[in-house]
């Protein structure tokens, strides 16, 4: 039988060396909430597991240059408890918070959710909408790339074998900016998103949208940005006409598949519904109107 080894390096260099030196498949272990399921089912058969959680800085949140830096392995529960981050990026925090149960929240991380490569990953549309930057480390050094460039297809990423994400950088927020994330699931908890939608935007003093980013999950092989949906918002308040255009843009961008979680027809319609509802929450938040969490 194949043997599986485990290492918990305490520095980036050691981790990179382990990944680079592995002759077979090496998997980075962050919260493990996807990896352990794949191990148990036999879907992945690595020869090495590199647990990155002991690397300094990989867990934790800090403010830097007016923005936030989130350690790649920071568990959802820690992110959710961070008041400053929650105030600035409520949509991203609630997106991460929607992954799985309380138990999953004790372990799941942004990096794991992103690098698992699921198009339905809850935190990823919010990360995309936030224009987050991933700090990637590997044998060739350190590089900073937009998160949009990480997933390349279901279960696949652009990271090299010896690379992993160390942290995420969120840009400083202009005034009257906020974000939101909604997903649709059949139950109230525990399901994988049938469709997910992240919206991040900035309003001017009159409530007109001056900047927007809209991302959709579970409607394509990866989470996608929907520039046409953002264009429908920019220069407008959230009136009926804007909402209709946003809905249409989201539906037009959605190219889902039919599977056990939803049909093409249903997912396409829900993409439009969620785009409207998510944008409405983001508008309210940016305008300073308080509202509750997505659930």
């Amino acid at each position: 039988m194949s043997s599986l080894s485990y290492a918990a390096p305490t520095s980036v260099d050691d981790a990179v060396k382990l990944l680079a030196g592995s002759s077979g498949l090496a998997k980075v272990l962050s919260g493990g909430t996807d990896l352990l399921v794949q191990l148990r089912s036999g879907r992945v058969k690595p020869e090495l597991i590199v647990d990155t959680k002991k690397i300094p800085g990989i867990i934790g949140i800090r403010e830097e240059n007016g923005g936030f830096v989130i350690g790649a392995g920071t568990p959802g529960a820690v992110v959710e408890a961070h008041a400053g981050l929650t105030a600035a990026w409520p949509g991203l925090v609630e997106a991460l918070d929607l992954i799985g149960s309380t138990q999953i929240q004790g372990r799941c991380s942004l990096a794991g959710n992103l690098c698992n490569g699921s198009p339905a990953a809850d935190s990823v549309p919010a990360l995309f909408a936030a224009n987050a930057i991933a700090v990637v480390v590997g044998s060739k050094g350190r590089r900073e790339i937009p998160v949009e460039q990480i997933p390349t297809g279901p279960g696949r990423t652009s990271l090299a074998k010896d690379e992993f994400i160390l942290e995420f950088k969120l840009p400083p927020r202009p005034a009257r900016s906020s974000d939101a994330y909604l997903r649709f699931i059949p139950r109230t908890e525990m399901d994988i998103a049938v469709v997910g939608c992240g919206v991040s935007l900035t309003l001017d003093a009159k409530g007109v949208c001056t900047a927007a980013r809209v991302a959709l999950g579970a409607v394509a092989p990866t989470v996608i940005m929907v520039p046409a949906a953002a264009a429908a918002l920019i220069g407008h308040t959230l009136d009926a006409d804007t909402l209709a255009k946003l809905d249409a843009a989201a539906q037009a961008a959605a190219k889902p598949i039919s599977d056990k979680r939803g049909t093409i027809e249903y997912r396409t319609k829900i993409a439009g519904v969620l785009a409207r509802r998510t944008a409405a929450i983001a508008f309210d938040r940016a305008a300073g109107i308080k509202n509750g969490k997505a659930h």
């Binding site: 918990a8 919260g31 493990g32 647990d51 149960s101 138990q103 004790g106």
Partner: peptide, 21 residues
């Protein structure tokens, strides 16, 4: 959730934690 344990103050599913961790 039938395997729930508290690990370093956090609720986790023990089936999603490696023993070595």
């Amino acid at each position: 959730g039938a395997c729930s344990v508290i690990m370093d103050g956090r609720l986790v599913c023990s089936c999603l934690v490696l023993g070595v961790e």
